[in-house]
C-alpha cells in the first residue's frame, strides 16, 4: 500500500535569492523514485505543493527537491529549516523511461533543472551516453549546472547567447543521431524543443505542469490536453499528476 509519509527535513540550502534546495529523509521515496516523478508536500497552507525529485540517496534514505519561490506556498516552504517535519506523498506520477534508448539529450529550463538532474545522475550511474542542455534567463539564474553541460542564457551573460534550441543546434551529429530527448521547463520552451526534436527525427518526452491539488489522480484539476483523434474528438483532458507528468511531445495539444 502507498502511504503519506511524515518526513524530517535534513538540510535546506539557499542556492539563490528565490530558490532553495531541500534534502528530506524518506527511505521509501529514496528507494522507489525514478527521474521525472514528483512529491506532493505539505506547507502551512491548505493544499500540498508538488515538486519534481532532483536526486535521491538510497544509502542515507533521502531525496532532494528544488523549490523556486513563485507564491505564498513556495515562500513558506523556502523558510523551512532542518529538523522540521513535513507530510509527503510520493513518489508520484509516471517518470521518464530511461530504458527506452541508449542515448539521451536532456534539456532543462528554469526549475526543470531539478528533475533533469535526477535523470542525469541515473544515466551517469548506468553509463548511458547523454548530453545535458540547460537554458536560463541570465547568469544569476544558473542552477545545478556542470562545466560539461551546454549552457545557454537569454541575455548572453553566460554560456551561449540564446535559448535551449540555440544550445541544441551546437550538438554534433554523433550526439544527436538516434537520441531520445527528455525535456522539462516552461511550456514555450518544451514546445520549441519538441519541434526541434521532431525536425531532427528524434523522439521527445516532456513533463507537463498545471496547478495541482491531490497529486494522486482523484480530483481532476491538473489536466492538460492530449490529442484524441482516435476517440473522434479534438482533444482529451488527462491528469498531469496521474497520467503524466511525462508525455510524448507529439501527443500533447500545444
Amino acid at each position: 500500500m502507498k502511504k503519506e509519509y511524515s518526513c524530517k527535513i535534513e538540510q535546506v540550502q539557499h542556492i539563490h535569492e528565490d530558490t532553495v534546495y531541500i534534502t528530506i529523509g524518506c527511505q521509501q521515496i529514496a528507494d522507489n523514485a525514478v527521474p521525472g516523478q514528483f512529491v506532493n508536500m505539505s506547507c502551512s497552507y491548505f493544499l500540498k505543493r508538488p515538486f519534481g525529485i532532483a536526486s535521491v540517496n538510497k544509502d542515507k534514505g533521502t531525496f532532494d527537491i528544488g523549490v523556486k519561490i513563485v507564491g505564498k506556498g513556495t515562500a513558506d516552504i523556502a523558510s523551512f529549516s532542518a529538523g522540521q517535519t513535513v507530510n509527503v506523498l510520493g513518489p508520484l506520477g509516471n517518470g521518464f523511461d530511461l530504458s527506452s534508448s541508449d542515448k539521451f539529450i536532456l534539456v532543462a529550463g528554469g526549475t526543470g533543472v531539478f528533475p533533469i538532474n535526477f535523470a542525469h545522475e541515473i544515466l551517469a550511474q548506468r553509463g548511458v551516453r547523454h548530453v545535458v542542455v540547460e537554458g536560463f534567463r541570465n547568469k544569476e539564474q544558473i542552477t545545478m549546472c556542470s562545466p560539461e553541460y551546454v549552457l545557454t542564457t537569454d541575455d548572453g551573460s553566460a554560456g551561449i547567447h540564446g535559448n535551449c534550441c540555440t544550445g541544441l543546434d551546437t550538438l554534433i551529429e554523433s550526439e544527436i543521431e538516434g537520441a531520445t530527448v527528455l525535456c522539462v521547463g516552461p511550456l514555450p520552451m518544451m514546445k520549441a524543443v519538441g519541434a526541434w526534436a521532431t525536425g531532427n527525427g528524434l523522439k521527445c518526452y516532456v513533463s507537463m505542469e498545471q496547478r495541482m491539488a491531490c497529486g494522486i489522480g482523484i480530483c481532476l484539476v491538473c489536466v492538460c490536453k492530449v490529442k484524441a483523434e482516435e476517440q473522434g474528438q479534438e482533444f482529451n483532458h488527462v491528469r498531469c499528476c496521474k497520467d503524466g507528468p511525462v508525455f510524448p511531445y507529439e501527443e500533447v495539444v500545444w
Binding site: R211, C219, V221
Partner: peptide, 22 residues
C-alpha cells in the same frame, strides 16, 4: 472533457474547483 484552463484555487481552509463534470 470538463472545463478549460486553471481548475483549482486555494483559499483559507479550503479550495475552489471548476472541473466541470469531466
Amino acid at each position: 472533457v470538463g472545463n478549460e484552463g486553471v481548475r483549482v484555487a486555494e483559499t483559507a481552509a479550503g479550495m475552489l474547483n471548476s472541473v466541470g463534470l469531466q
